[in-house]
């Protein structure tokens, strides 16, 4: 290793670790975010307050109601009339209704204003009714790779991609412009330090921070949330390295074109939001319009998201995932090269 690089790395580490805000960003934020996504961001529906109006009150209708209650998902709230139930729905006191008319015909209603969970609730209801022996057809669906359809299994691996981008993109977007703003850049420019030594010295510590984050979040996912990691850890690490080439390259590019740290910070957010929205983290890419789908091809997070979910839940190997690795490698190389060429010691 070049001697100058060694001094550059030492300086960067001293500065980064000395900053208390930085220590929080590096250590506390990843764990906090993982916990938030693990516990709070869930599309699983639990304890749905359900108005029950049974105008028929036969053994058959009571049996159906019992099945709903026994599922543990629906919590019955007894009402005497449809009007009462509707009113309760209007007041958001309940999220679903089971209504039997005088002839014992059943109607199931969910609160559509609650978006995603309304659909999930309806799905549960259909499943319960499907199990009803009097029904002519029994539907039995099974979700592979995530049999309990736990949204946690789906979201927490994705958090790794989000987390790493937020942290390393922001850190690296500050890297150069920070020194320009405080005036130390000029002093560096007049030294014989080589371009690559400066850039590697700047980015390598952030790369290491990114890798540590990946390991920390993976550990929380596996040991705290018991999300199975089916695939290989080395493949996960390789994906992380390629992904970091992208986030650090983009950050450096932002840093070399920004004049102030504020500008760099805003630009970084401007990248992070669309990257996350178009990554398939929350919204499936397959459902997007063709134009938008085309743009996602240039989004490294999209590939990382696929790799993470496949590695965690399916345990796929390189034989199926290689296009994602290749895409990240190409994008990352292009970003890093552009950034390095933009960075000049003589203007």
């Amino acid at each position: 290793m070049s001697k100058r690089l060694k001094f550059m790395l030492k300086k960067e580490l001293l500065q980064t670790l000395r900053d208390p805000r930085m220590r929080i960003v590096i250590l506390v934020m990843p764990i906090f975010q993982t916990l938030v996504f693990g516990y709070a961001v869930t599309t699983d529906v639990k304890s749905v307050d359900t108005a029950v109006v049974d105008l028929a009150n036969t053994s058959a209708t009571r049996a159906v109601t019992d099945q709903f209650v026994a599922s543990g998902i629906f919590v019955p709230v007894w009402k005497n009339s449809y009007e009462e139930a509707w009113h309760a729905m209007d007041q958001s006191e309940i999220q679903a209704m089971i209504l039997f008319d005088r002839n014992g015909r059943m109607q199931f209603v969910t609160d559509g204003s609650r978006g995603l969970s309304a659909g999930v609730t309806a799905g549960y209801a259909a499943a319960i009714l499907g199990r009803n022996q009097q029904a002519p057809v029994t539907v039995e669906s099974r979700a592979w790779y995530n049999p309990m359809l736990e949204s946690r299994n789906f979201y927490v691996p994705g958090v790794i991609a989000m987390m790493v981008m937020v942290i390393t993109l922001i850190l690296s977007s500050m890297a150069v412009v920070r020194e320009v703003e405080i005036g130390t850049m000029e002093q560096i420019m007049v030294t014989p330090m080589k371009r690559w030594e400066f850039i590697v010295g700047k980015l390598l510590p952030f790369g290491v921070i990114g890798m540590v984050n990946v390991l920390v979040v993976t550990a929380v996912a596996v040991f705290w949330f018991s999300i199975p990691l089916q695939g290989s850890v080395p493949l996960l690490m390789l994906a992380a390295v390629l992904y970091l080439m992208n986030t650090l390259g983009f950050g450096l590019l932002i840093s070399t074109v920004s004049r102030t740290q504020q500008q760099a910070m805003l630009s970084a957010f401007f990248v992070i939001f669309p990257a996350s929205l178009l990554s398939g983290f929350a919204f499936p890419i397959a459902n997007m319009p063709a134009v938008i789908r085309f743009f996602t091809l240039f989004n490294p997070m999209r590939y990382m998201m696929t790799i993470l979910r496949d590695l965690f839940l399916k345990g796929n190997g390189l034989s199926t995932l290689w296009p994602n690795y290749l895409a990240m490698f190409l994008l990352g190389t292009a970003l890093l090269t552009t950034a390095i060429l933009r960075f000049r010691k003589t203007s």
Binding site: K3, R4, K6, F7, M8, K10, K11, L14, Q15, R18, D19, I182, G183, T184, E186, Q187, I188, T191, P192, M193
Partner: peptide, 23 residues
């Protein structure tokens, strides 16, 4: 330059070590 351009968040010794190292 007139603008102070050593690192405020490094100690005196660390600054000097850094620049001595670079040169």
């Amino acid at each position: 330059s007139q603008k102070f351009s050593l690192y405020d968040d490094l100690t005196v010794e660390e600054n000097l070590n850094f620049f001595a190292g670079i040169y």
